[in-house]
């Protein structure tokens, strides 16, 4: 219908001005020199050259490492939880999933701040340990605290994603597997787990992406010295004022994320194709 089709026209302008142009600005800043206020842009690769410095490469690798560990821990905890929830009766499923998803909606700063008073040297955990004459154990400002904070913040996404794929699975396939003589273990490994992989993969993107780019969690639980790529970008824009270098780092990060998304999507397709192909006689 023509009349209503016209309704998209304002948004085409809106989208160009507020989504496309900002992206182009990041690219422009990343490839130009500082101080181009008179619109005399000087093209340069310096901002990217600057990034190939052991200090920055280290930050990059550290971010990847922390994000990967967080993702793996989220799968290891999230899968059994999602599996248990998917196998209880429907009312309990709704209730448990509501309980799992409520924390997702609570302000991330609040959720992260809550851990400071638990993990600090005189915090709740160390107070309990002191009662049994253990400790104090240093937890704040360590990798452990940062990864714990990330798992705490992003685990609900993993559970939700795996649960969704388990819950919509055709139960008849599981019954068929038992009828054909498979035991519980075989049914899980050969039927349930492969069918739930798309859920695991979308969970991986939901956890890995925020984990690799967050700067709040490392700042709160890792302390001022703890640098991940998000902190590096924040520093360049807020403290140092090196917008061109900051844009270059953001661009690199966005590229890495786009690439990993593309790869996971491909993997997802391959798995689905294989699962379908594998079932053919």
């Amino acid at each position: 219908m023509k009349v209503f089709g016209n309704l998209v026209k304002p948004y085409l302008f809106w989208m160009t001005a507020f989504i496309v142009v900002p992206m182009l600005l990041i690219v422009l800043y990343a490839f130009t020199k500082h101080g181009n206020s008179v619109m005399a842009f000087q093209f340069t690769f310096d901002n990217f050259g600057k990034f190939i410095d052991p200090v920055f490469i280290k930050v990059m690798l550290k971010s990847m490492q922390v994000a990967i560990i967080t993702t793996v821990v989220c799968i290891l905890i999230g899968y059994p939880i999602a599996y248990i929830i998917a196998n209880v009766n429907e009312r309990l499923q709704t209730l448990l999933m509501l309980l799992v998803t409520i924390p997702m909606w609570i302000n991330m700063l609040v959720r992260t701040y809550a851990w400071i008073s638990i993990l600090s040297d005189s915090g709740l955990i160390n107070s309990f340990l002191a009662m049994i004459n253990v400790g104090p154990i240093k937890m704040m400002y360590t990798d452990f605290a940062v990864i714990l904070g990330m798992v705490y913040n992003f685990l609900p996404f993993m559970i939700l994603s795996i649960y969704t794929s388990l819950a919509k699975m055709d139960r008849a396939l599981i019954h068929a597997s038992y009828d054909l003589g498979a035991n519980q273990r075989q049914t899980f490994l050969r039927v349930i787990f492969p069918l739930s992989l798309p859920g695991v993969i979308s969970g991986v993107t939901l956890v890995f992406l925020p984990a690799v780019s967050t700067f709040i969690i490392p700042k709160f639980l890792g302390g001022g010295q703890y640098m991940l790529i998000g902190n590096l970008i924040e520093n360049q824009f807020i403290t140092v004022g090196e917008w061109n270098f900051g844009s270059a780092i953001s661009l690199i990060m966005a590229m890495i994320i786009m690439l990993s998304m593309y790869l996971t999507r491909r993997m997802d397709k391959d798995i689905v194709a294989e699962a379908q192909g594998g079932n053919k006689w």
């Binding site: 989208m15 900002p22 600005l25 990041i26 970008i233 900051g246 990060m253 994320i257």
Partner: peptide, 24 residues
Amino acid sequence: LIINVNNFPILNPEIVTAIGLMLL
């Protein structure tokens, strides 16, 4: 076209969207 462009701010890390708007 719209759906794909629309996905940008959803798929991109928040910090990238934030910087783009700040520069704008």
